[in-house]
Write a protein that binds this DNA or RNA. Sequence first.
DNA 1: TAGCCTACCAAGCAAGTGTTTGGTTTGTTA
DNA 2: TAACAAACCAAACACTTGCTTGGTAGGCTA
Lengths: 196, 196
Amino acid sequence: MTAQPVASSRRDELLAIAAELFATKGFKNTTVRDIADSAGILSGSLYHHFDSKESMVDEILSTFQDELFGKYSEILAGSADPRAKLEAVVRVSFEAIDQHRNEVAIFQNEADYLGTFDRFAYLADRNQQSRDVWMTLLNEGVSSGALRKDLDIELVYRFIRDTVWVAVRWYRPGAKLSHHDIADQYLTILLDGITS
Amino acid sequence: MTAQPVASSRRDELLAIAAELFATKGFKNTTVRDIADSAGILSGSLYHHFDSKESMVDEILSTFQDELFGKYSEILAGSADPRAKLEAVVRVSFEAIDQHRNEVAIFQNEADYLGTFDRFAYLADRNQQSRDVWMTLLNEGVSSGALRKDLDIELVYRFIRDTVWVAVRWYRPGAKLSHHDIADQYLTILLDGITS
DNA sequence: TAGCCTACCAAGCAAGTGTTTGGTTTGTTA
DNA sequence: TAACAAACCAAACACTTGCTTGGTAGGCTA
């Protein structure tokens, strides 16, 4: 059973195969032999392209994170009002789920554990950076009067963060609702609630 | 480094130790030697109490699920209106996170993968059962006019389910906000939104 | 056509894994 | 005090794991 994802180089191809397996089965549950099998080669041959299994996740996660936080920065640097920026961050996140499903899933499932190793300390940094993005926007929203003042901001932050990213567990591209639709409905619930 | 959770029998004690490790490090990342070390015994001695490492998670998960779904059934069988029942299910769920943090975490992190094995087929059944609970309440809510009609019910269900359970990732008993507080704020956001 | 590079194979190793087996300790009960 | 069971030890086994090593096939280039 060999997979053939679209990728420029053989190296990228193997990374895509690994990402798919890591996302589906988990990092620890995926063996280098699993990856090699899916690629139609022997496990030892992977080491012509990569130093270790760990360096594969490393590259998958860091590449994705760099791209994502680049987009966050652009939004924050823009001139839109707090609420619009908040909406934009939500939409960019759902877009990431749509375009980088495996990477998001790996991050969601493995970051906590991998973060305990020195090599993946940057995951915690990015996490903090992400928190800063959201907290800044939420505090600005409350200050400007756009958001209600009776809620615990820290709690709202966690609520938004988790709800957005956990969607990767069920979202599949090409389904009835596009990631744009989902972002719309999610923002509606978040901003106005589900009561009539 | 030995742990000493409160438990009636040695068997329950060992299960609690295993649950803590499974929740923190993941099932696959936890070795039987890890469990034995935490309990202050040798790995082989675990097999006096359990058939296998798998049967440990099995027992942890099934016991927890039986208890949880018992509570769900009670609520559904009650005479409260849809909105009150919906609130009750949310509160019971946050209570479960408070009282059975490890079990919830294990379920959240491992159910998808474990569910691919015959032995854990009941996890998928419970999942379907849980969906029925929520969808019934949401549909009743829309019918009765309590909830808005312009949202995709299936989507609302997933959002609620995910946001409630994902709280296990950051919630710690004894923190500033109790699980009652969190349920309150969560229901406020869900029902009325965060805008002022 | 000689040299070189990319991608891979074939075979294996050392460490770690879940599990088994036979025996020992300790407390309780008849 | 003899018998018994629960809890555990000590040592090992078979297997899986990530990774290494030396070599090879085939295409490209000078």
